[in-house]
Design a protein around this nucleic acid. Structure first.
Lengths: 200, 200
DNA sequence: TCCTGCTATGCAACTCGTTGCATAGACAAG
DNA sequence: CTTGTCTATGCAACGAGTTGCATAGCAGGA
């Protein structure tokens, strides 16, 4: 598990409260690592009792107090240890791929509508990434030159952008394939009515 | 959760035992959905008691008996229902992205070695996918024309290939970025010795 | 002959992540 | 003045996934 490490990185980039972390996990870090506030509070508490992070109560006006966490030396050491561990290939889990293969045993039309919706969410995500890139890294308001932290944030974001572009191109391919299949099935007995191996 | 559905799809493509499913989850289906034999046996048992799948004991010579599972009507219906549910965006979890951002607070050299190892595993995976594509879909021994099931398997595999190519290109970008950062740090106080915000 | 490895199935304990719910102060809109 | 929303934190229960271990027959090599 690496939620602890994601939190350490985020706190090193900028100290903050559990709530603030949760919001970051809805945005920048959340692009490649999701977590709910529950997980964050629980792990943060454990990390504090392990001495990885330190909390300071920060009184606020007009809002509840918050605990501002920052990384302590043992936390930095733990992160360093983790960074030196070999990267293992991620375990993948793509609902869509399963659904596509499942479409061989069902009417593909409904799936096509969903793929189109999915395209829209990925287009939006790409637009969001590109806006963030312009704002933080390549636009006129971006700091110049970028420091190490920003360079690395940028290369990760470029990864997200590449991923979205690749996904959108593939979704076009998927849609075209589903179209072709539906055309080929028109005028014939529908595959959905003969479950099993429709083309045999 | 969708392991049940992945199993349904796999059993519709071809009935088989828990053990056989586990091996498929190490290969074709495993490209986009991982599962251990434990999960598979447990879920399979639940699915059987729910009437989603049916088992037949198959005696074998020279090996332990196996249970050959195939999909029953309620299972087919459950799959169909799931296929009609909207696709929700996957929750991402990329260790590597976290590690890259973490490298701002550590010596990047070690990470570079790991990225290179990672490149090799992805190259191998790409080669493996391409070999599978040639064998099953585009090569001279492939069936012609492909049926619906094969068309859909193929488009999913093309997704995997696109993903690997994208990843490899991005890893080049990552390595180049890490190189640049290390060059910039040479001759200066090492960032690793001033944890916090090295470039401030 | 013994040891390793493969097929084949399963239990038990654990960790990780999700969901539902609860609390509580402050502010803005109606 | 009540209702809804935002900040801020947390508990409890559940579900999904992982890890370690156990069993058992057979095949092949040292």
């Amino acid at each position: 598990m690496a939620l602890e490490h994601a939190i350490l990185v985020s706190l090193l980039e900028k100290p903050g409260s559990g709530y603030e972390l949760a919001r970051r996990f809805d945005r920048s870090i959340g692009y490649f690592w999701t977590a709910t506030h529950q997980q964050i509070y629980r792990v943060l508490k454990r990390m504090e009792s392990d001495g990885w992070v330190e909390a300071r109560e920060v009184p606020q006006q007009g809002r509840p107090d918050k605990k501002r966490y920052s990384v302590a030396a043992p936390g930095q050491a733990a992160l360093s240890r983790w960074l030196h561990e070999p990267i293992e290939p991620e375990s993948v889990r793509h609902d869509l791929a399963v659904k596509i293969r499942g479409a061989a045993f069902d009417d593909p039309s409904e799936l096509m509508r969903q793929v189109e919706r999915y395209q829209r969410t990925h287009s939006e995500r790409l637009a969001h990434y590109l806006a963030g890139e312009l704002r933080d890294f390549t636009g006129p308001d971006a700091p110049e030159p970028l420091d190490t932290m920003q360079e690395l944030q940028h290369v990760v974001l470029r990864g997200g952008i590449a991923y979205e572009r690749m996904t959108l191109a593939w979704l076009d391919d998927v849609l075209a394939t589903l179209h072709r299949i539906r055309e080929a099935q028109t005028g014939r007995t529908r595959a959905a009515e003969r479950p099993g191996h429709p083309e045999r």
